[in-house]
Amino acid sequence: MEAGAGAPAKAAKPAMNTQRNTFLASMALLALVLLAWQFLPPALDVPKFIIPTVTDCLAEMKRMWVQEGLLGHTLSTALYTVLGFAIGSLLGAVIGYLLGMSEFWEKVLSPYILALQIAPKVAFAPLFIMWFGYNSMPKLLVTVLIVFFPVLVNVLQAMRTVDRDLVNLARAYNLSRWGIFLKVEMPSTLPNLMAGLRIASTLAVIGVTVGELVGGNTGLGFLISYGGGQANAAMVFDAIVLLTVIGFLLYTVLVRIEERVLHYLPKAQQ
């Protein structure tokens, strides 16, 4: 019994060890960077309004929490990130699938899609403010726009490369057009859709931040421009860190969903 139980445990051990080693190394690196951040700038006589130390940032974080309503700003940014991401990727996916089903419209629209994809979406922010005023509409629109394209392009690309033989098989089995979409095309494109969503999730944070930077008086983007105006570098640093956390959380959730949805793919990633 000892031998039987020992063999698989032995095989699993090196894998677990490497996993723990990489985690420890990652943590050590983080600690090193934080230490350097804390002690290097003062040692080199860099003033606090250029690079505040870790403890300065933490102290500023506490002050912002109490005096600036940091929680509200953070939640607002998180809300619009998720909202913009959801609306933008839904639109991108729906239009991607529609165009994927109609070769004619895809060919008609593809040059404009390409042009819009290349155009820097964040540059639209001032326009949106002119049109809709200083409310949450502009930042939502920028986010929707920036999220829309990677999802659309990924879905469209995947629809083009669906295995023709699979579609023929479904046709031979008397599936309707809708049935073919639902049972063959849609699932075939899922890996690409998920990849598009992952890219889009990182872009969503950029969209909201730019929207908040340019106009409005709420959100972490606003705190960045406000802190910048006051030469309060610690405030800017804190807002950037929190934005990163929001983006990271969204990305992590998507990776988890992807792992569940695409469980049937042989483990190649990671």
């Binding site: 033989d165 699979l166 031979a172 049972k183 699932p187 899922l190």
Partner: peptide, 17 residues
Amino acid sequence: PNAHVGFMLQKDLLLPW
């Protein structure tokens, strides 16, 4: 396409999901 015929190819065409 009709119900009389079943075909299979070199590719198995199994749906991976």
